[in-house]
């Protein structure tokens, strides 16, 4: 192995991530262009109620947002503005989009973080336990529940939780209270139902992965060696098997962000009225506030890009068996 190989690898990955980001931005621009209604129309839908002369408003809007320029010019403006952090003006909330994001991202962040902690810790534990007790009743019950957890639609689960625990039993509020301080027990309590809603599907998935990954590792020679050495089972499982079984699961957890977590968080925020980015994007859609919708879609893609990048790099560092050339 060459010296500095890891450094080169990281640089190459960074350049690659930059190109992907460029592609992502380009695709949103193309989608926006080929859509049936131009951005000016969407602006107009909001303003026309207040004006007598729509044609002049269109002209003014087009001039204001550079929509009268050639498409190539618009494309470059779009790129430059995004890079400079000038993400447009949200007219439904009368704020710059970046300010809107700054106020609301924390709500999504806390929901996603807590759900992932809940899902991964519990899922991995149950999975490993179920693999160690393979073909016992515990294993069957765990497998059965993981099947149910994977199949239950998370938005429906959210509604059912509200129905049972908020409407019937009255233990929780049906709506998230935004006045609560971020680091308080009351806030944690308000997040219990949303975290279960978002986390159950993920947890079930991790249970299955952890189970099969542990089973794979239990058959390996190093486990036999460890047992032959006379190590207690606690050490064999807790150290030798666990460390090897956990690596592929970490990739899956990171990869889940793109497919499962963002979609789930979007729906969970809408159901429980949590004012995170999903809720903001949802409100913006019905207000035709397109700069907000684009920005949040792009933020989602960028977060996925960054986590994938980090996972790749951390992984090569953690696991010396991975070649990076």
């Amino acid at each position: 192995m060459k010296r500095g190989g890891l450094q080169n690898y990281i640089i190459r990955r960074l350049i690659y991530a930059f190109l992907i980001a460029f592609g992502v931005v380009t695709i949103t621009f193309i989608l926006l262009r080929i859509g049936p209604s131009s951005p000016a129309d969407k602006y107009l839908a909001n303003i026309s109620a207040r004006t007598q002369n729509p044609a002049r408003v269109i002209e003014a809007v087009e001039a204001r947002y550079g929509l009268d320029k050639p498409v190539i010019q618009q494309y470059f403006d779009y790129l430059v503005n995004l890079a400079r952090g000038d993400w447009g003006w949200s007219f439904s909330t009368s704020l710059p989009v970046i300010e809107l994001i700054r106020r609301h991202w924390i709500y999504s962040f806390q929901l996603i973080l807590l759900s992932m902690l809940f899902a991964s810790s519990l899922g991995i534990l149950i999975g490993i336990y179920s693999a160690v007790k393979q073909y016992t009743r515990t294993d069957y019950i765990a497998t059965f529940f993981s099947f149910i957890g994977i199949s239950i639609p998370n938005f429906w689960l959210g509604i059912m939780l509200i129905l049972v625990f908020s409407v019937q039993l009255g233990w929780f509020k049906t709506y998230y209270d935004t006045g609560l301080p971020m680091f308080s027990l009351a806030n944690l309590k308000a997040l219990i139902l949303p975290v279960i809603t978002l986390g159950t599907g993920m947890m079930a998935g991790y249970t299955r992965y952890a189970r099969s990954s542990t089973l794979d590792n239990l058959r390996k020679d190093f486990v036999k060696t460890a047992r032959a050495k006379g190590l207690p089972e606690r050490v064999v499982i807790g150290k030798h098997v666990f460390r090897n079984a956990i690596l592929p699961i970490i990739t899956i957890i990171m990869f889940d962000l793109a497919g499962v977590v963002f979609g789930g968080a979007y729906l969970t925020e809408i159901i429980f009225g949590i004012p995170g980015l999903g809720r903001v994007s949802f409100n913006a859609i019905f207000a035709n506030d397109y700069p907000v919708v684009i920005t949040i879609t792009l933020i989602g893609a960028m977060v996925v890009l960054l986590t994938n990048l980090t996972t790749d790099i951390v992984y090569t560092w953690l696991d010396p068996r991975i070649r990076y050339d």
Partner: peptide, 24 residues
């Protein structure tokens, strides 16, 4: 494959919502 990578970077549901928002 690079195009596939780009498409995979979009969170599936967010992209879907974005497309439906634009095209109705």
């Amino acid at each position: 494959m690079r195009f596939t990578d780009i498409m995979m970077t979009f969170p599936f549901f967010l992209l879907l919502v974005f497309i439906v928002f634009i095209f109705g």
